[in-house]
């Protein structure tokens, strides 16, 4: 039986002063499965990822991540090293001068030696077809290139689960194909938020629609 990485049980969440975003929502992510997540703008897809990463705290319900019930900030420190979150906006994620520094930021946080971190970086970049980008200034890359570098920086942490927030926006056809290809080959769990049906159907085993605070299997 596959191992459950994330288990959300009866999660309710609302921002103070706003209508509830989730009410008694249940959601599970198992090892090696790929899940699609669709929903209208403002449905709360990004917020759901924030709950998974412990960036938002539910008002009620339980989050079990990697077999551990998580409630405090400390509990989630571990989760963040095992789940890789690709932000909707890569500019929020990339902040170092060079690609190399950005990609090695995660491994260094995990306590890897400098040498090992560089090794990982080189490998991940070449896996994504970004060899030769090491010394490039991240800020000067194109939108699609930034996307891929952000993905590299997440993959460098060797996560068990990938949380991808609209990974295809702004990609040209070539980069799109490449991303589809890369994700297909990656043998880890993925949760993908996207408005692109062909992309989701090419990758996912099941797709949920987030609507009115609940997940509906499509």
């Amino acid at each position: 039986m596959a191992e459950a990485y994330f288990k959300l049980q009866d999660i309710s969440f609302s921002r103070p002063g706003f209508a509830p975003l989730f009410s008694e929502l249940n959601f599970e992510v198992y090892s090696r499965e790929t899940i699609g997540l669709v929903g209208g703008n403002g449905a709360g897809k990004t917020s759901l990822f924030h709950l998974l990463m412990g960036l938002l705290k539910p008002s009620s319900g339980e989050i079990i991540a990697f077999g551990k019930t998580c409630s405090s900030e400390g509990d989630f420190l571990d989760v963040r090293t095992q789940a890789g979150y690709l932000f909707q906006n890569s500019d929020d994620q990339l902040f170092c001068p060079t690609v190399e520094e950005d990609v090695s930021f995660g491994p260094l946080n995990l306590g890897q030696s400098h040498k090992k971190a560089i090794e990982i970086t080189t490998k991940v970049l070449s896996d994504l077809g970004l060899s030769g980008f090491e010394k490039r200034i991240t800020h000067h890359l194109s939108g699609g290139e930034k996307r891929l570098v952000a993905l590299a920086s997440v993959l460098a942490m060797e996560p068990k689960v990938l949380l991808l927030d609209e990974p295809t926006t702004g990609l040209d056809e070539l980069a799109y194909e490449r991303l589809t290809d890369i994700l297909k080959r990656l043998d880890i769990s993925k949760v993908i938020i996207s408005h692109d049906e062909t992309f989701l159907s090419a990758l996912t085993e099941r797709t949920y629609r987030l609507k009115a605070g609940q997940l509906h299997l499509l």
Binding site: M53, L55, T81, Y85, D92, Q93, F105, L108, N109
Partner: peptide, 21 residues
């Protein structure tokens, strides 16, 4: 903007410490 960048750093396991990194 700063808050979002800090959040992203946190997601990649960043913790405050007295170190050069």
């Amino acid at each position: 903007e700063l808050e979002r960048m800090r959040t992203a750093m946190k997601c990649r396991g960043f913790q405050y410490s007295t170190s050069w990194h």
